[in-house]
Write a protein that binds this DNA or RNA. Structure first.
Lengths: 207, 207
DNA sequence: TTTTTAAGTGAATGAACATTCATTTATATT
DNA sequence: AATATAAATGAATGTTCATTCACTTAAAAA
């Protein structure tokens, strides 16, 4: 519906208001992060985005379609940001560190989007969405991993094992970072120094 | 309401049916794992648990109260299982390995409970729940960490950093393990061999 | 300025929602 | 067997839900 609008553009028409769609998308994610999936109703969303409920259905087929589009968009933006400045020819340490920095940047810049993303991924909605990583991202990651292996920078392991070791601690830190209360009621601020120190330890585990 | 029922037990009464409450709790978690929070309505739950909607309100104040009780119960069972056979006087490597094994055992034995738990923790519901880890678990973990530090088995770091390095890769593996499709559409089976190998690498990162 | 088209709407629709209530049922004691 | 009590219920309650529809508005082209 939405992503195919470029296929047929009649001559005589009123064009869609990009700002309206942006508001719908942003407010939806904000509401879901603040009140959960059951706290985001179409009528409340319409009010928050300053449109009629019926307007939402011009942009999205239904509620589920809206949620899937949101997830898709975040996934793509995230991949894009993660690839900024990246090349599979970077040394393993430089490449992974760039990934960590890029991902942290995205999370800090778009906390609602990231938290919506995490909520969606941990819900059964993920099973009904047919989202796929953009090809560019996939091939870059694959070549990066292959180079690191070839150069003896990491040992041979299954992709899931690599991912768990290389990003597990990172995303765990992010979770603490985004909660205001963590262990023992303290607040945990993810400083650059801490991130770098954990990174060094992760590198050690992969060698 | 529920947890205080032992305070006053009249002589003449019909006693609550433990089996009914168990069904309500189990079906609720199953529904949430399969259909999400918005897929679990009180009327559908009643039907699934073979009780009247009104019966649920005998055991729980309202929907939110039910969800909080579920979370609480999982949290407590989880802590209990994690402590099985554990002592803070174990060597760091043995103690952490036991934790990994206990946690994996819980996840395999009660997948609905674990997946409900993860979904709850990643939703805003977590902000309105006032759950606390049981004291026994907390103190055990604290002493374990202190001993490992004293014996020079790990280096000094903030608790969140320790947690991220020691459990981040583990929970990441679990996520892959519980999805039927992971990276590149393959299925990932978490074998004991893989778990042990990742564990060894994690130990290396902590030293 | 007129025409054409889709964007955009407010009010409606029926279904599903959480919760309550007037009764009935089961059970432990007498 | 009778009694007292809370468990358990099915049928309501009023509210909110996702979605639709008859209609109005805006804008691009002629």
């Amino acid at each position: 519906m939405n992503e195919h609008s470029f296929i047929f553009v009649p001559d005589l028409m009123r064009s869609k208001d990009e700002h309206k769609e942006r508001m719908i998308r942003d407010k939806a994610m904000e509401m879901i992060v603040k009140e959960g999936f059951d706290g985001m109703s179409m009528q409340k969303l319409a009010k928050a985005a300053n449109v009629s409920p019926a307007t939402i259905y011009i942009y999205f087929k239904n509620r589920e379609d809206l949620l899937n589009h949101l997830y898709n968009e975040v996934q793509n933006t995230f991949s894009e940001v993660a690839l900024k400045g990246f090349s599979p020819d970077l040394s393993f340490e430089d490449g992974l560190w760039l990934q960590w920095q890029n991902r942290l940047r995205f999370i800090n810049e778009f906390p609602y989007q990231y938290q919506f993303y995490e909520q969606f991924r941990n819900s059964p909605l993920i099973n009904h969405s047919d989202v796929q990583l953009i090809m560019d991202f996939k091939t870059n990651m694959k070549h990066f991993l292959m180079n690191a292996l070839k150069n003896g920078e990491i040992k041979k392991m299954e992709p899931e094992v690599f991912w768990s070791l290389a990003y597990g601690p990172f995303y765990s830190l992010i979770k603490f970072h985004l909660q205001e209360k963590t262990m023992m009621g303290r607040h945990f601020k993810l400083s650059p120094a801490i991130l770098k120190s954990v990174f060094k330890q992760v590198i050690k585990s992969l060698q």
